[in-house]
């Protein structure tokens, strides 16, 4: 009975959550005039694939897709490495400067991104990194939010586990790779999902760093169709949004399977 109620609530919630996404899917196969109808409609009356055809014809799609994949992929990998290492240090290792470092990390999570935008660009420009993958990727490899996330998760790993490995003579790197990281699978999955989502969708930074179209990412290229309320090509924008969202969903689907109890956790007393 209780489970039936739970299911019912979850299903109702699900409908409310997926509504706009379904509208986006359905409207991406409508002609422009039909999308702009007020009040809006759900089912397409004159379904057409023109929006998608137009999208692929007008955009140099493979290039933008590849750029997005390279940039978001490298940043996500970098985050997984650097943020988990520093998160481990901040949560489980005692060394001078630890508290100051955590303060800096936490502090910079809290600095509004807008305020550092121009100085960061000037810095990257002076390093000669505009219009390069390095300029798109390097500033975000050390993602403060990711470091904070990993630290919080690692706090809940029992100290005894690490201590006993150390007593058994395991090296520090080995402890990290063999004991800590496997315990962090759910956290790494969450970090991967959030990092990929954030940097796949990132717009303003790639827009200013890429000065020629061959370095544009998908969101930047898609924004070309958004030209104010009156002239925006909603059909192209929606079709593009559907295409942009797919990799994010695939990453989510692949990684959410790791939201399972770590084997070691249950075995420990």
């Amino acid at each position: 009975m209780a489970s039936l109620v739970l299911h019912a609530v979850l299903v109702v919630g699900l409908v409310a959550m997926v509504g706009p996404f379904v509208w986006m899917l359905l409207s991406s196969v409508k002609p422009e005039g039909e999308i702009r109808l007020v009040p809006t409609t759900w089912w397409p009356h004159h379904p057409t694939l023109d929006n998608y055809r137009d999208l692929f014809a007008r955009l140099n799609f493979p290039t933008y897709f590849l750029n997005s994949a390279i940039v978001a992929g490298l940043i996500t990998l970098g985050n997984l490495m650097f943020c988990s290492a520093v998160g481990y240090a901040l949560a489980k290792l005692r060394f001078p400067g630890r508290r100051a470092l955590f303060g800096l990390v936490l502090g910079s999570v809290m600095v509004p991104g807008m305020v550092t935008f121009v100085p960061l660009f000037v810095l990257v420009a002076n390093m000669g990194l505009t219009n390069t993958y390095a300029g798109l990727v390097l500033p975000f490899l050390a993602w403060a939010l990711g470091a904070f996330l990993m630290r919080q998760f690692m706090l809940s790993i029992p100290d005894e586990l690490i201590e006993s490995a150390r007593v058994d003579g395991a090296g520090e790197l080995r402890i990290f790779l063999r004991i800590v990281l496997p315990l962090c699978r759910p956290a790494l999955a969450a970090l991967g999902i959030l990092s990929f989502l954030t940097f796949w969708n990132s717009f303003l930074w790639p827009l200013v760093v890429a000065t020629t179209e061959d370095k544009y990412t998908l969101p930047v290229a898609l924004a070309l169709f958004s030209v104010g309320q009156n002239q925006t090509k909603f059909g192209l924008l929606l079709a593009g949004s559907v295409v942009v969202v797919l990799p994010v969903l695939i990453v989510f689907l692949l990684l959410q399977r790791h939201f399972v109890r770590g084997i070691a956790t249950t075995g420990l007393k």
């Binding site: 935008f117 121009v118 660009f121 000037v122 990257v124 420009a125 002076n126 505009t130 717009f203 303003l204 827009l207 200013v208 000065t211 020629t212 179209e213 930047v220 924004a223 070309l224 958004s226 030209v227 104010g228």
Partner: peptide, 25 residues
């Protein structure tokens, strides 16, 4: 001539940062 299409969204920021970083077209 190399033309780069720039989205109107963010165009103002792009011009401002380009001028600041001396990276203009």
């Amino acid at each position: 001539v190399t033309v780069t299409a720039v989205p109107w969204d963010g165009a103002h920021d792009k011009l401002a940062t380009a001028i600041a970083g001396k990276q203009t077209p």
